[in-house]
Design a protein around this nucleic acid. Structure first.
Lengths: 150, 150
DNA sequence: TATTGTTATACTCTATAACTATA
DNA sequence: TATAGTTATAGAGTATAACAATA
C-alpha cells in the first residue's frame, strides 16, 4: 500500500480495499445494532446508560459533557432512567451542589445480557464459516482495532 | 469453530472471537461515521436522501415504507430536501394521485464526495499498516460480507 | 461572584387523525 | 369505496434562558 503523506495521491487499489472494508464494516455494524433487543429506551437514554455503566459513578454534568448534550437534557434523561430503576443518585461527598449517579445492578445485568445476545448471534453466524474463514477473521480483528486506535 | 445448530452451546472461544469482532466492527463503524462531513441534514433527511439515491426514482409512499416512517413524516422530510435543491418531484406517469421523487445531480455528487472522503480517510489509516496486515484485511473483507448476508 | 443542577419555555421531529384529489 | 399525499394537531426530545442552592 502506498504511503499517504497528504501530498501523494492514494492509489486506486488502496481506495478499492478501503471501499470494501467500509461497506462490510458499516453493514455488519448495522446488522449487529438490529440484533439489539427492545429495551424500551430511546437512543439518548440507552447511550447515557451505557456511558454511565462504562465510566462509573459520575456527576450529571460530567455525563452531559461526555454525551455532548446540555445539562437540562441530561436532567430529563436521568429522570426517566431513575424512574425505571436503572440508575440511582447519591449526594456528592464533598460538594453539596453536585450529586453522583450510577447504574443499578439490574441495569448493568441488562446491558451485559444484551451485549451477550448480540455476540451469540454473531457467533452463530460464524458457525457457518469454514475454518479458513474463521482464521481470516481472527487475523483481521487486531488490524481493525489498529485502524481505530488514534 | 463448533457448529451451532441451535441445540448445542457455543464454546467460550467462539464467543471470545465474536466479542473481538463485535467491538472492532462497532468502533470502526463509529469512527467512519464521525468522519462524515457536516451536510447540514438531520439523520432522517440524510437517510431518506441516501435511500432515494440508491433506489432510484420512487414515490413518497414507497420511500416512507423503506425508511419505516409514516407518510406525513416523509412529506416533511421531502419538503426540506426539495427546498435545499436536493430532490425534485415529477408527476406519476399513470396515476395522478401519486408523484415520483428523485435526487438531483447536485445531491448525488454530494453523497458520492462524502463517501469518497470517508474512504480516503480509511485508506490513509491503512497506509500505516504493514503489508501483512493489509493482506489480513483483504482476506477478511469477503468473510465479513458473508456474515452479513442473511 | 462562579458553578451545579433544575425548572420554564420554545423549537424540531415524528406520529395519528382528518382532509383533498384521484382511481 | 379505496388509495396517495397533504394539512392539522399532539406527543417526545432537546435546546436556551431564568432560577435556586452552594462553593
Amino acid at each position: 500500500m502506498s504511503y499517504d503523506d497528504g501530498m501523494t495521491t492514494l492509489s486506486a487499489a488502496d481506495l478499492e480495499l478501503a471501499h470494501g472494508v467500509r461497506m462490510a464494516v458499516t453493514r455488519l455494524a448495522r446488522r449487529l445494532r438490529n440484533q439489539r433487543a427492545d429495551l424500551s429506551l430511546t437512543p439518548s437514554q440507552l447511550s447515557a446508560l451505557a456511558a454511565l455503566d462504562k465510566h462509573g459513578p459520575i456527576t450529571p454534568g460530567q455525563l452531559a459533557d461526555h454525551e455532548k448534550v446540555q445539562p437540562p437534557s441530561m436532567t430529563r434523561v436521568l429522570g426517566v432512567l431513575e424512574e425505571k430503576g436503572l440508575v440511582v443518585s447519591t449526594p456528592h461527598p464533598t460538594d453539596r451542589r453536585q450529586k453522583v449517579v450510577e447504574v443499578t445492578s439490574a441495569a448493568h445485568a441488562m446491558l451485559v445480557a444484551d451485549r451477550r445476545a448480540r455476540e451469540e448471534w454473531l457467533a452463530s453466524r460464524m458457525a457457518e464459516l469454514t475454518s479458513a474463514e474463521v482464521a481470516a477473521l481472527r487475523a483481521a480483528t487486531p488490524v481493525l482495532e489498529k485502524l481505530i486506535a488514534p
